[in-house]
Structures are given as structure tokens and as C-alpha cells.
Simulated assay, not measured.
Amino acid sequence: MTSLPDQFRAAARGAGATADDADLDSAAKYLLTHWAEPQRHYHDVTHLSAVLEVVDRFAGLAPHPDRVRLAAWMHDAIYDPKALGDANERDSAEFAQGLLVTLGVPEEVAAEVARLVGLTAGHATEENDPDGELLCDADLSILAADEERYARYAAAIRREYAHVPDGDFRAGRSRVLNELLKLPSIYRLAPIRDEWESRAQANLRAELEQLA
């Protein structure tokens, strides 16, 4: 199995990075230190690997899969459960653009990766944005997990927000789930939607019942 640093290096090269292998490996290891921070219980290396696996599986649906892979690496690079609003996504997008430019990725490509990262704030994409759709679908793949894995995910999210009183957490989490259910569909790309949509909808509704 290809290591995560090897996957990062391949994606960066595919997106036009000109930095040498040592610098790309250092960047990957630096990113992995972010993903291993102690406040992360769900948004960790396991989540990163899962998103990358989905991107790889459905890479043929996106015109620029290496940009999507880089966006997957960057989309939770900055993660503070106490941050307000979309601060984590905005900070991650800014971080992504700066890091990729230092690695020799063309500025317009780095800007596009940053745009993709920003989409994960609300998982709402415009029409004709298959790269964005693949990233958002991959990021939300956990929602279609089996019952046991979904329960572990929900518990991990609660641990990340341990600082939030139970009543406030239930209200906030319910808002998040309801916003996802208000989307035209949770998943955008047809092959993913056909495979996962019904299961994800059922998981969200079941969690909402538990939160009520």
C-alpha cells in the first residue's frame, strides 16, 4: 500500500509542483502533524485516509483528480473545534494556497485547490463543478457508513466538542444534520449518490431522533 507521503508527493507532482522530493516529503509530514493533533477525534489521519480512498475510487469522475487529492489533504489542515463559523475552512484554504505555492504549484492551481477546500464549509457546489462535487462527496462519505461505524463517528464528533454543554451540542448538531438534509441530495455525483444516498439519509434521520 502506498504511504501517505508518497500519495501526497504524487498528487503534488500531478498538480504541477516543482519542489524536490525532499521538500514534498517534508510538506506531507508537516501536514500529518496537523492531522494528528490531540483535539482531533474524528478529523484525524483516519478521516484523511478515508477521503483520499474515495477520491481514488471515483477519480475518473473528476477532470483534475490530483487537485481534489491535494484539497483532501488540506481541507481540515487547520482544525479547532472552538473556532467560530467557517473559520477552519477559511484558514485551511489560505494555508493550502500558501503551502502549495511554496512547493512550486502554479498559482492558479493553488488558488483552485484553495477554492475546493472552501467548499467543505457548507458542502454546497455550483453546477458543473465535478472536482468540487467529488471532494464534498468524499468528505461526507462517513455519513453512509454502516450503523456501527456511524455510531463511532458520531461519538468522535461529540468528543471533539466536549467543551460544549450537552444541550447546546444537541441543538447545534441537529442544525448541521438538518442543513445536510435540506440539500437537494447529500451526494452530488450520480454513481456516489446511487450507492450511498439512501443509507446516509437514514443515518442522519436516526441521529436526529437520538438527539431530540
Score class of each variant (00 low, 15 high):
94 E>W: 11
125 T>F: 05
17 A>P: 00
160 E>C: 04
119 L>R: 05
70 L>E: 00
42 Y>E: 01
131 D>Q: 10
208 L>A: 03
139 D>A: 05
14 G>F: 03
185 S>V: 10
130 P>Y: 07
100 L>R: 01
103 L>A: 04
39 Q>H: 12
106 P>W: 02
144 A>F: 02
66 D>K: 00
41 H>W: 13
34 H>A: 14
190 A>E: 15
163 H>A: 14
168 D>G: 10
114 A>Y: 08
183 L>R: 15
129 D>H: 11
84 L>T: 13
105 V>F: 08
194 D>H: 12
19 A>V: 03
6 D>K: 13
75 H>R: 04
100 L>G: 00
94 E>G: 12
64 H>D: 15
64 H>P: 01
130 P>N: 04
181 L>T: 06
5 P>T: 04
200 A>W: 00
34 H>R: 15
89 E>G: 05
132 G>M: 08
5 P>V: 05
151 A>P: 06
137 D>P: 06
71 A>D: 02
42 Y>H: 13
14 G>R: 00
154 A>Q: 10
110 A>Y: 06
37 E>V: 08
18 T>F: 07
197 E>D: 06
177 L>Y: 08
72 A>R: 00
19 A>P: 01
140 L>A: 02
43 H>E: 06
6 D>N: 12
81 P>Y: 07
21 D>K: 08
96 A>I: 06
175 R>A: 13
79 Y>T: 02
155 A>F: 09
123 H>N: 10
152 R>I: 09
155 A>H: 12
121 A>T: 07
203 N>H: 06
148 E>C: 06
84 L>K: 15
10 A>V: 09
83 A>E: 08
17 A>S: 11
199 R>M: 10
4 L>Q: 05
54 V>P: 03
164 V>I: 13
93 A>M: 07
156 A>D: 10
191 P>G: 06
127 E>F: 12
2 T>Y: 12
86 D>A: 12
85 G>P: 01
176 V>T: 13
21 D>C: 10
102 T>N: 11
